[in-house]
Structure formats: C-alpha cells, structure tokens
Nucleic acid binder design. Structure first.
Length: 559
RNA sequence: GCGCCUGUAGCUCAGCUGGAUAGAGCGUCUGACUACGGAUCAGAAGGUCGGGGGUUCGAAUCUUCCCAGGCGCGCCA
C-alpha cells in the first residue's frame, strides 16, 4: 500500500470513529452511515486531505452541513500525522498534515526501484489485450499506429497493476479480403510476365503489392504462369502473407511493441473451431436460416438487427470466425478480454457482446476500447488514406520522421475517445518542443547530477538514514508529494484503461523537477541537505523511468 | 432516420467518474544566475466549458432537448 493510501485509510477509519461517537452521544441522528471517502483537494490551501462527509450527512441528519462538520471535527482524534483539522466552504472537513509525511515514500521508492508504482489490483488474474490485428495484406497505417501505442501501454499498465497479461495479434488471414488480395497479386504477377491483366478496381493498388510480386518472381521466375490458377493464387498468397507478416512484426518491434501470441484466423477454420461454434449456437437455438443464409438471433439479446453467420454461398462471415475466436479466448481462461478497435468498427461491439452471451459467458468479460480515427494533416491539408489508392503514411514512415518516442507519446497523451488530428509537419518541424523531450530531459538531468556526484568522488547516501526534515523548500515538498501519487496513478490508469493519465502525470512530475532544479542545487557543501536532495532526485529519476516504461518510451541518460 | 464518439483559452488537448477559485503545451508578451545540461525556469495576457432546460448543498462532469463535426447502420472486414 502506498503512503497516500495508508494515510487515507487511517483518516477514513478515524472519521468512522468520530461519526460513531457523534451518533452515540446523540449529536448526529441518522439511520445509516454513508460511505466515508477521503479525497485529495485540488487546492493546496484546502489541506492535504479532505472529506465531504458532513455534506452527505446534512440531509439525513436534518442539520446544516457546517454544523455537522463541527461535530465531526470535535469528535475526531488525530493520528500521527494530522496537524490540524479545519472546516471550510459549504461543509468540507479539511485535514492538514505535518509536512514530513510527504517524505515517507522516498526510502521506499529507492528500495523498490523498478517496481515502484506497481500495485496488485489484478491479483494475478489473466487478461488478454488484443490490438492492431491489422489485415496482413498491407502496410500499417496511422490508425494501426495509434492502436499499437494504446494497446501496448494498456497492457504494460495492467501488468504493472498486477494482472497476468497476454498481448495478442489476430491475423485476418482468411475470408474475402484474402481472395481480393489474391486477385491483385495475380494481376501484378501476370503483368510482370508481360500479360495485360488489370488490377481489379477494388483491389490493392499499393506499390508494396508490386514489390512483393517482384520478389516472388525473383524466386520463382515465370513458372507460376503455367500452373493452374488455384495453385498460382495460393502460392502467391502464402508468399505474400509471410512477407507481410514478417514486415509487420519488424515494424511493430521497432515501435517497441512485441506480442506474446500471433493468432491466425485460418487456424480456427483448419481446426474446425468455426464449425464447432456454429454448431454450438445452433444447439442453443440462437440461429435460424433465411434466404439461404444462416443468421444469428442478435435481437434475442437486445441488438436491433440479426446478423449473417454463413452466407448463402456457404462461406462463413467474418462475424462467425470472430465469435469462434472470442470463444477460443474465453476457453483459454482469460477473465478479462480487452479489444482495441478503431471507431469504424464500433457498430460491431453490441453484436459481439450478444454473441458472447449466447456462448454462455458474461458479456462483461469483453471490454472493447474504441479509439477514434486519426486524421492526418500535411501542408495544412487532410491526407486521405486508402489502400485502394495506395496513398498513405505508414507506421514505418512515422517512426522515421517523428521518432518512436515522440510518436508513441503523441498517441498516448490523448484519450482514445478523442478524434486525433496528426499534423505531420508540426510533429516534424517542432519535434524539439514535443512534450516527450521535456520529460526525458528531466530524467537526463538527474542522470547528469549523478555523474557529477561520481566524478567528485561522492556516493549515493543510504535513504534509510536521512534527515528529511531538512527539505523545507516549496518545490521539495511538491516534488515529494507528486512522487507519492504514482502508485495511485497506476491504479487509476489501469482501472480506466487510460494511459493518458500516466502521460499527464509524468509531464507534471517533470515540470516539478525542472522547477526544483532551477531554484536549488543538489550537490552542495551542506552534506545533510545534499544527501536528502540526492535521495529526492534519485526517487524522481526512478519514478520517471518507471512511468516512461509504461508508455514504451526510453528514459535516456544523456540527450 | 437510428446508434456511438466529440465540442473546454487564438491552436492542440487535460480535467482523477459530482467538489471548493476550470488546467497544461504551442503561439504572443515581459523577465532569469558566467551555475549539477537554457531541450530549462519565473511571470503576464487569454474562458458564457457549443446552447437552453432539469436533477442537488454543489454540474465541464449526471439527465433531457436543440446546434455543429467525425464514424457506423452489407450475405465487407
């Protein structure tokens, strides 16, 4: 438990006692005690902690809130750290603590090191985060990039919050778009062999398709012009998928994203899992036939329309294999399955939840994070991206132009809900003013202090034997206070699947470090103060590094 | 037409699930020590939280109705 949590719990307990005492002596008459919560006020002047308990009691007790607050304050017995209790505003009870409490966490941070900030909300329960899952028929675009940054950070945060996390990429290597893919590959291949075959209008027109066919031809020559169409297509598709997947893996890895599982859709078909699932739904009475197709009765589960599972041509839809895939996830024992999807798929959410219910699971095990689309600006104009026109900026381009750290921070600092305008020129031209450098610079600055210390023959003092009461400057208190918040931020970010909270937290923490740095020196002749400050900045360095790690961003020692 | 997301400073966005005087960055303006790294710091200006009603001690946050933008509503994925 973090220092903040410990004190909060202590105050809540003391308040409960105060309320109990007030009821026993008849000063407050209520039937049932409300839930007691102690929060951290936004305004520093309102104390270190505060409670709205008096306002909640006012109505049931039929008393003025400030009067209730007075009674609560009178019966309140202060613990170790409470200096004074005040009543303010409409009836808040504010707790002012002795300044030293903020330094309690410093020795802990240093001794916990890379583990500082980790919490155990998950208690080891199995959670899967599935993200990107782009069609392996093309390159990764800006939407995939956002999904990669978001999904990977969510996974990292959940892991830090005590969950047993699996990162998974679902490969859509079956179905319609593969046929479509084959059409385009075949056309390009035959074109290279001198035949005049156009790429279908709704096919893949990107240059990468041509490049794939060129390397295929380098290996196999024109030999596949002679074989049966079916064999030619399957050879081309197999070759292209392997090449594409390899390149996707590499680019994502360059972006700092590494998966535990690459799951093939085709493998579900091969194992008969799609048929099994359809059979299961049939036995449950959740399907029916109409106009030659097999339908899922989504309307039985509160969805406004039924959905086709098997087309009248006998081929299962994407929805059918997706149900089988999610069934497979749940059979693997995940207590929580998180999918990161683009907003253009949001209509799929209620259907999928209905299907999970039909399979006999609680739909709440599936949580879909919908991220709004990325709009790309270049030269002040929107860049329309489409696979058909072959015009788009890839993740690879992005890493090259903006850099991995800045790109990841840019995606993470905004909530998934926000529509993201990504101005390439801005990201490029002003990359030195990107907030991510501000945070990294704070880390590098501390490392520089440590190098100075070493050069002067100094040593990092033992955090357990420091007189922290020497740290009386405003910025020292503020910095230490912020450090103590980190575990709470991790908890909140995990609960809300909200990596942007960590990004904001780090930015604020870096700001406090810079302010402190500009007004006070760490290495000074006064040994005791210097030692306390060394621990303070070392704790800051650790926290910055741990936080940046959750976002997949480097914490450089020099810049 | 129905559904989901969004609307907060000139621009890009936060706002801890209902708290007290709404915050950052960029941009603009004024300043900073020959210094452990100036990719920094201190300060100023800038707001009817899209608009109207409602809920209550208290609303940017919940609710409802408008307005504006994005995305969905296929036997595509």
């Amino acid at each position: 438990m973090s220092v903040v949590e410990e004190i909060r719990a202590e105050l809540e307990k003391a308040l409960a006692h105060s309320l109990q005492a007030s009821r026993e002596c008849g000063l407050i008459k209520i039937d049932q005690a409300p839930e007691i919560t102690v929060e951290v006020p936004r305004e520093k002047d309102h104390g270190d902690f505060a409670t709205n308990l008096a306002m909640l009691l006012a109505r049931p007790a039929r008393m003025a809130p400030r009067r209730v607050a007075e009674i609560l304050a009178q019966n309140f017995s202060a613990g170790t750290w409470v200096e004074r209790v005040e009543i303010a505003g409409p009836g808040f009870v504010n707790f002012y603590l002795k300044p030293g409490w903020v330094y309690l966490s410093l020795p802990r941070i240093v001794s916990q090191g890379a583990r500082y900030g980790s919490v155990d909300n998950g208690r080891g329960s199995k959670v899967q985060v599935e993200f990107v899952s782009a069609n392996p028929t093309g390159l990764l675009h800006m939407g995939n990039a956002r999904g990669a940054a978001l999904g990977d950070s969510i996974a990292a945060i959940l892991k830090f919050a005590g969950y047993d996390v699996t990162r998974e990429f679902y490969i859509n290597d079956a179905g319609n778009q593969i046929e479509n893919f084959a059409d385009s590959l075949e056309a390009r291949y035959l074109q290279l062999a001198g035949q005049d075959i156009p790429v279908p209008e709704d096919g893949y027109h990107g240059e990468d398709i041509m490049a794939t066919c060129i390397s295929f031809r380098e290996k196999h020559g024109d030999s596949y012009t002679e074989v049966a169409e079916k064999d030619r297509r399957s050879a081309l598709v197999a070759f292209a998928l392997e090449e594409k997947l390899e390149s996707i893996k590499n680019v994502l890895s360059d972006f700092g994203v590494d998966y535990d599982v690459w799951f093939s859709e085709q493998s579900l078909h091969d194992a008969g899992a799609v048929q099994d699932t359809l059979e299961f739904l049939r036995e449950k009475g959740c399907v029916y036939e109409r106009e030659g197709a097999l339908w899922f009765k989504a309307t039985d589960f509160g969805v406004d329309k039924d959905e086709v599972l098997v087309r009248s041509n006998g081929l299962p839809t994407y929805f059918a294999s997706d149900i089988a895939y999610h069934r497979n996830k749940l059979q693997r024992g995940f207590a929580w399955a998180i999918d990161v999807w683009g907003a253009d798929h949001h209509g799929h959410v209620p259907r999928m939840k209905a299907a999970i219910k039909a399979l006999g699971y609680d739909p709440a095990v599936l949580e879909v994070v919908i991220m709004q689309l990325v709009r790309l600006y270049k030269g002040g104009e929107i860049v329309r991206m489409s696979k058909r026109s072959g015009q788009f900026v890839t993740l690879e381009d992005l890493i090259e132009e903006v850099g991995r750290d800045a790109a990841r921070y840019f995606f993470i600092m905004r909530s998934a809900d926000s529509h993201l305008d990504f101005d390439l020129d801005l990201a490029r031209s002003e990359s030195n003013e990107n907030p991510v450098y501000y945070i990294q610079y704070a880390h590098a600055r501390i490392c520089s202090i440590m190098r100075q210390l070493e050069e002067q023959g100094g040593q990092m003092p033992d955090p357990g034997s420091i007189d922290y009461s020497l740290l009386i400057e405003e910025y020292e208190l503020a910095l230490a206070r912020k450090l103590a918040d980190f575990p709470g931020e991790v908890t909140a970010a995990a609960a809300g699947l909200a990596p942007q909270r960590i990004a904001r937290y780090l930015h604020e923490l870096a700001g406090l470090l810079h302010s402190f740095y500009n007004s006070h020196r760490v290495i000074i002749p006064e040994k005791d103060i210097s030692a306390a400050r060394l621990v303070l900045v070392e704790a800051t360095r650790i926290t910055l590094k741990n936080g940046l790690g959750l976002l997949g961003i480097n914490a450089p020692e020099r810049m």
